[in-house]
Amino acid sequence: MSFHVLLVEDELDFANTLAERLALRDIRADVVSEASDAVDKAKKNDYDVVLLDLVLWHARGFDVLKEIKENKPEVPVILLSGRGSEKDFEEGMKKGAYDYLVKPVQIEQLIEKMNQAASSKTGKAGT
């Protein structure tokens, strides 16, 4: 079964290529780079998973996480980060993230994590 993902990432070349790879696996990803767009999209759509980069150009990923969880507490959010910081991991989990992955990430690992996250929400499993 396919699912619908929101990908919040300011490196658009990274995000668009990842979205293309996910599409080949029947996973639809909407890409946004601005924090306000991310919150708007999350409010308006019923995403199975949100992939959120922790370091955005104009905002802190943690602030975006907080807003998404306030508006859509049921949507699992997986944090993506360039640094494997224990402190970031702890703060993210405390703020309601489902999990934390360090970039570059292998797509099989990402999909496995997204499947687990989506299942935790509705019992829905991905491809």
């Binding site: 490196e11 070349d13 990274f14 290529t17 990842l18 790879r21 360039g82 640094r83 970039k103 570059p104 990430v105």
Partner: peptide, 9 residues
């Protein structure tokens, strides 16, 4: 790291 991630994708 962003460069490596893009090349990886």
């Amino acid at each position: 790291n962003n460069v490596l991630s893009i090349v990886n994708e």
